[in-house]
């Protein structure tokens, strides 16, 4: 696409973020059933339970960048990824795709934006239609969107499969005839078949064995070079994120608590949660180490703690942390952290 544009515009787009999130939030509310609605009308105290899965996240991803999104279960990282990919509408805030608000786009432009952002899912067993052959799984979308002609689809699918490291002679098979690693390759081939420039990978290697995981990670890195892709790489595995990412965002209970270049965040973690998380990562270099463990559990997102969400587990918490939500502030160039301690000094 970029080669079709005149040079000045292309240069401007290279610097501009490909995706920008502004104050993005997502609330999931449980609908009241009829009994509860009746009780409410009669004056009973019934409230809709609302989960603030993502709570005011700002993030911009530049072209060609790999951004790692890290957090524990329930922190909202998958919900954020789905909003970025356009699968879930946000409750508040905006997703800007190449500077344009996704919601304001007309039909054709909106389709184009969605097509250029593709998603790769965690579970290679659940994300492929078991009743379609591989050639249909990979070939359907490019055909529908007019990227290939019906006559050309066969050789097009072969190319896609070969690029993802699969033997094209297997394209007449069904998903259940493949192993987990091969299925993940099918998922990658399907995503790349519509020629996206931005991929959201949601725990894309979490379900795979170590040796297969290494193969898929290498494939991601090779494809990035070949196709000039931009990734939002969502994972709970810090080792994977450290290896792959240029920049890392740490989330805790719906909020981004720290954001920095990958090397910086692993060398100088600022937020107490990031530090705790890094201390707990099992490392193959460690021998007979003493595990300590962050005290406490991840609180329920139905009733998050006041102020800074991490304060009940934080060894350094003080009064202000219980009352006031800390903002993301720059602590070093390109390194932002949401902790009140940074202002105390």
């Amino acid at each position: 696409m970029s080669d079709l544009m005149d040079p000045p515009r292309a240069a401007a787009q290279a610097a501009a973020p490909i995706i920008e999130l502004r104050g993005l939030s997502k609330r999931f509310a449980s609908r009241l059933d009829i009994a509860a609605r009746l009780a409410k009308r009669l004056g009973a105290r019934v409230r809709e339970d609302a989960v603030h899965a993502v709570d005011g996240v700002d993030l911009s991803i530049r072209k060609g960048e790999v951004v790692g999104l890290v957090g524990e279960s329930g922190c909202g990282k998958s919900t954020l990824g789905r909003m970025v990919a356009g699968i879930l509408p946000p409750s508040e805030g905006t997703v800007l795709w190449r500077g344009q608000d996704l919601r304001g786009l007309s039909g054709a432009a909106s389709r184009e934006a969605k097509l250029r952002t593709q998603m790769i899912f965690q579970d290679p067993y659940a994300s492929l239609n078991p009743r379609l052959k591989v050639q249909e799984i990979v070939g359907e979308a490019p055909l529908v969107h007019g990227l290939v002609t019906r006559a050309g689809v066969d050789s097009y699918v072969d190319d896609q499969l070969r690029r993802a490291g699969l033997d094209p002679t297997l394209k007449k098979r069904y998903p259940h005839q493949f192993s987990g690693g091969q299925r993940q390759r099918i998922g990658i081939a399907r995503a790349l078949a519509v020629q996206p420039d931005f991929l959201v990978c949601d725990e894309a290697v979490a379900a795979l064995d170590v040796s297969i995981q290494a193969q898929i990670l290498n494939l991601f890195m090779k494809l990035r070079m070949e196709l000039d892709l931009t990734y939002l790489f969502i994972s709970h595995d810090l080792g994977v994120v450290e290896h792959l990412s240029d920049r890392v965002v740490i989330m805790y209970l719906g909020r981004a608590v720290e954001e920095a270049p990958a090397e910086e965040v692993f060398r100088h973690p600022n937020h107490p949660y990031t530090r705790a998380l890094l201390a707990e990562v099992p490392r193959i270099e460690a021998r007979k180490r003493a595990f300590a463990g962050v005290k406490g559990e991840i609180p329920s997102p139905l009733a998050p703690p006041s102020g800074c969400h991490f304060h009940p587990r934080c060894p350094l918490a003080f009064d202000r942390c219980r009352a006031e939500r800390p903002a993301l502030r720059e602590v070093a160039p390109g390194h932002r952290s949401a902790c009140h301690l940074n202002e105390a000094t």
């Binding site: 040796s211 290494a214 090779k222 994977v240 450290e242 990562v281």
Partner: peptide, 24 residues
């Protein structure tokens, strides 16, 4: 040796992992 090479933290950032080819 292959298993250890596949662990991301043992590898240099951004370099290809020393993967084991094939599958079980």
């Amino acid at each position: 040796l292959g298993l250890i090479g596949s662990v991301p933290s043992r590898n240099r950032r951004g370099e290809p992992l020393r993967q084991i080819p094939g599958m079980t």
